[in-house]
Amino acid sequence: MHPAPSVIVFTTLSGLGFGLLFFLGLGLPEVTGWVAFVIYAIAYALSVGGLMASTFHLGRPERAWNALTQWKSSWLSREGWCAVIALIIMGLYAIGAIFFGQRWGVLGLLGALFSLATVFTTSMIYTQLRTIPRWNMALTPVMFLSFGLAGGAVLAGQAGLAIPLLAIAASVQILYWWRGDSALERSGTNLGTATGLGQRGSVRAFEPPHTGTNYLLREFVHVVGRKHVAKLRVISFALAFFVPVALLLLPFSHFFGLLAVLSHLAGVAVSRWLFFAQAEHVVGLYYGKR
């Protein structure tokens, strides 16, 4: 798949933002006044910023609100609803914390649940696609949720929770890469089933339909950069999990905390780049590009 910057920024930032909102909703940390204002501003900048970025890849961004209509069948629509509801509830909850010094617990709990549901529905947009075996795995939502929770805990300054959550997310990441690498082969789809000619012999793409490129090749048949996969995985893993855990184990300081957040953010962004760039869409088979 084409690793569009808009979707990488979207899933990375909004995952982190809604992860932070989840912990804030649970009162971890319990903040009021100016401190609350700053931390909610960060959470909203990440989550809303991510959602805004996602509209950049639309062909018709001015019609984006249409996406809320089909919640009965579409995961993308459900994600829109969960995000809007989570942001409204957490907004009210934030008003209580900032202006009234109050913690409206029930509201916070509801907001936390919808924040988590937003991350889950985001992951289901990718998980539902049978055309991309690497995404069509139960591990995909597990990965998105574990990343969101770990990142949220780091950002919320919950070192005690962040370290085990980072360890869990790191294990899920390794498992995801391991299972993902054989997903296309395990799916049983190949040029033989794609053309229905597989029973007759070995099928080879002889001539593409056009001499030039097209939308399908640009969008689904990204093969650039695959040779650096091993290196990028090491970089991503070190930045997302290893460095933050090491920094959080040091005596607490705001500077180390900030470094841990930035490192985690960069690592997750690299992991998301790989998530898209490595995903093999089966339509590539028709072009002999798998």
């Binding site: 798949m1 890849h57 639309l58 062909g59 018709r60 961004p61 019609r63 984006a64 249409n66 996406a67 993308l76 947009i125 539902q128 696609l129 049978r130 055309t131 991309i132 789809t189 794609a194 097209n214 939308y215 399908l216 969008e219 689904f220 869409h281 089966v282 339509v283 028709y286």
Partner: peptide, 22 residues
């Protein structure tokens, strides 16, 4: 007139039957 051009339908099609008009 309702399509927002998100491209998800093309992602879901195994046959490459849908193309987003540039």
């Amino acid at each position: 007139s309702d399509c927002i051009g998100c491209g998800l339908c093309a992602w879901s099609c195994p046959y490459g039957a849908r193309e987003l008009d540039q």
